[in-house]
Amino acid sequence: MDWQQIFATRNNRMKASEIRELLKLLDQPDIISFAGGIPDPDLFPAQAFQEAFSDALTPQNQATALQYSVSEGYGPLRDWIVEEMARLGVPCTRDNILITSGSQQALDYLGKLFLSPGDTALVGWPTYLGALGAFNAYEPRYDRLDPETNRSAADYAKEAGEGRVKFAYMSVDFANPTGKTLDHAMRERVIDLADALDIAVIEDAAYQSLRYEGEALAPVLAREIERKGDINACRTIYCGSFSKTLAPGLRVGWVCGAQQVISQLVLLKQAADLHSSTINQMAIATVARAQFDSHVTKIKAAYSARRDRMLAALEAHMPEGVTWTRPEGGMFVWLELPKQINSADLLARSLESERVAFVPGHAFFADGSGSNTLRLSFSRTNEALIDEGVARLGRLIAAA
């Protein structure tokens, strides 16, 4: 049977994630991988989760843990998130919170909620490739969101053509892939732009807790609440996740936003998977309540040291003409190579001769540009291997 002839046209825009493919290399022991932006499993609070799951399966809890549940999410977990959001300057209630299967599911739902074919999504250039993968299924066009400039709302609207601009998507703290953070002024400009265009703002906060130095900045949603007084009057939708702090395998994230948006997302959740795993939510709630802050302090110390080692190794081993970002947190450093070097070709040579993996930068650009860029992740690799891997990569680039 020719399945392709009956697939929906949107499938033509759906592509395999380059990062998911590169993660398969982690099983090869001689590969030094800077590819996947994933936590170090040695830092997982495994004992705490073992105890939390045991508690969830006690006679008094197992009926809740193993039963169907409400689509909005497990109440005690939503209560903890309400408290956490308040600490970030976002006063809200349970009704402003939806639990999702990781923040990736939230991006898929938001794409489905807002995008009709031909509508415009404003994204970074580069941006998180998982967001592009989520939005692509809904057949949008993309335009470059650039809060560093004063590009007018009228210019964005004109570029949109027949479709409407629907939202601005951005990772504001230690962004994937660049590691950059939007300063106060840029955050304010995004709110101004969204108000002028009458669009939503999707704030991807997956790395918000992983700050190693510098001043903590209020989320865009918090800044908008300062202006408008109430979360239900705001257009910013905050996407949070436990994947980078507690455990990615449990697939627990959340959306925080105006009740009108959350109620529509709940309908999408009901149609898709009814609700996220209840027992996983219970375990996350127990561990977060007991040790979220102390655990985040622990992993920040480890990742900060690896970031420092990677930056030092880049200084020591990269040839002239290579530049890179210096992130204040997160998991990534972004490299720009001399124009004539194609990072996809470089990866093929690197895997063959130097046994070092990274992600070519073109995957993070909606238009496939950025062929001379690449992303390095320092979160999974120990400091000695960071030195060795960067030295090998520098040698390869110098010979290119």
Rank of each mutant, 00 (worst) to 15 (best):
E336A: 04
K112M: 12
S304L: 02
N11H: 13
N280D: 10
A305E: 00
F242D: 09
S116Y: 12
T325A: 14
E328W: 05
A363F: 01
P177C: 12
S171L: 07
P45F: 09
L129E: 15
R164D: 14
H275R: 10
V255P: 05
A302W: 06
A35P: 08
S371T: 12
F292K: 06
A316Q: 14
R20T: 07
I225T: 02
E84G: 05
F332W: 13
L43C: 09
A153W: 03
L393N: 03
S343C: 08
A185G: 05
T149V: 14
G240R: 09
N12G: 12
S54Q: 14
K244R: 11
L193I: 04
V287E: 02
F332S: 11
P29F: 01
A391C: 12
A35G: 13
P248F: 14
I32Q: 04
L246P: 03
D27I: 03
S54L: 11
W334Y: 15
V123G: 04
N342T: 08
F49L: 08
S294K: 08
N11I: 07
R78N: 05
Q62E: 08
E21S: 09
C92Q: 02
Q62M: 15
A218C: 07
A52P: 02
D2Y: 00
S209P: 01
R164E: 14
T381Y: 02
R78D: 03
F167N: 01
A302N: 09
T58F: 04
E315M: 03
P177K: 10
P248K: 06
T278R: 15
E388H: 06
A196G: 05
V322N: 07
G240E: 02
A185I: 00
L246E: 03
R349M: 00
T93Y: 10
G240T: 04
V201W: 00
Q28H: 09
S116D: 14
L25N: 08
F53E: 04
W80S: 12
E226P: 00
I6P: 04
G249H: 13
C256W: 01
V90D: 04
G89P: 08
P91K: 09
L98E: 02
G133N: 11
F7S: 09
V190T: 10
K158G: 06
F174H: 12
C256Q: 08
